[in-house]
Design a protein around this nucleic acid. Structure first.
Lengths: 139, 139
DNA sequence: TTAAACCTTAGCAATTTACTAGGAATTGTA
DNA sequence: TACAATTCCTAGTAAATTGCTAAGGTTTAA
C-alpha cells in the first residue's frame, strides 16, 4: 500500500503554490526548481488541478498559476481527487452488498476494507492546504 | 494508493482460518475454495505467515494450518508485516530530518506523510483477528 | 518579434503485481 | 507398503501500473 507520486507531488506543488503566490503567479519552473519535480510532469498535474478549479492559470510570458480559492478552503482530498490518486482497498465494488470474489456472499473482510477507506479519506478531508503552510511557518 | 492482494488475501485467509479451525487444521484447498484464491498463491502467503509464527503447519495427509496464538492476540498489522504489505507514503527515508528530494531541507510535506502513515498503522494495530470473526458471527 | 510561459496528447521504459509452474518432502490411511 | 493429500520451496513470467519524457502547439508580456 503506497502513495503514488501523482498524489504526493500534487500536494507538494500546491503547498509550494500556497507559500509563494502571495502577490504574483508562480511558474512551474519555479516549483520544479524548489520541489525537484520535472516541469513536464508538473504540467500534467496542473492540467488536472485546473480542470477541477483548484488553480487558475495565467498564460503567456510572466504567467504561472495561482490558487483558485483560499488555501483554507482546499482540502487535501480535493487535490487527491483532482489528480486521480484513488484510495482503493477493495477489488470488489465499494457499496456492493454481495458479489465479492465471484461468490454470492459478501467477503468476510468487506466491511473492514470499507472502514479503512473511510479512515484514510477522513484524514485527507480534515486537512486543508492552509494547515500545511501554517505548520511550516511555525517552525 | 491501494492495497495489494498480498495484504488483502492474507487477512482474508487468516480470518477464514480463525473461523474454521476450531478443532482441526484447515487445508489450503479449503481456504482456496471458500475465499476463491489459488492454492499456489496461498502457499506463498502461508510460508511467510508461518515464518512470523502467526500460524502452525501440520504436514502430510489431513494436514493443514492452525493459528499459532489466539485470534484475540493477532493484530492485523502483524499479518500485514508478515506478508510484506508495507505502508509507504514517502520516498525519502521515514525518519530522516533532511534529505528529501535530494535537497538539503526536509520537504514541506514530510510530516504530513509521516502522520498519514501513523494514522493507517494505528488502524491496523487496533484491530485484532478476533474482531473480524466476532463481527461476522453477530450478523 | 521573441522568449517565457501554459496546453495537450502520445508514448514508453522500468518496476511491481499477481500470479503460475514444477517438483520435493512429509504423513495419515487403505 | 503404496498412494493420496498435503505442506514446502524456488523460479519464472504476463499484465498492469507507474513515473516519467517527447514533441509540438498556443498565448501573452515586454
Amino acid at each position: 500500500m503506497k502513495l503514488t507520486t501523482k498524489g504526493r507531488y500534487a500536494v507538494m506543488a500546491m503547498a509550494d503554490l500556497a507559500s509563494y503566490s502571495r502577490d504574483k503567479p508562480v511558474s512551474l519552473s519555479e516549483i520544479s526548481a524548489r520541489q525537484n519535480i520535472s516541469i513536464a510532469y508538473l504540467e500534467q498535474l496542473f492540467l488536472r488541478l485546473k480542470n477541477k478549479k483548484l488553480v487558475k492559470s495565467l498564460r503567456g510570458s510572466r504567467g504561472g498559476y495561482v490558487l483558485d480559492k483560499p488555501a483554507a478552503e482546499i482540502k487535501l482530498s480535493n487535490i487527491f481527487y483532482a489528480v486521480n490518486e484513488e484510495i482503493k482497498t477493495l477489488n470488489c465494488k465499494k457499496d456492493s452488498k454481495r458479489g465479492c470474489n465471484n461468490k454470492s456472499v459478501k467477503c468476510i473482510t468487506h466491511d473492514l476494507w470499507d472502514d479503512l477507506e473511510n479512515h484514510i479519506n477522513d484524514f485527507f478531508d480534515k486537512i486543508k492546504l492552509a494547515d500545511l503552510t501554517r505548520k511550516k511557518n511555525e517552525k
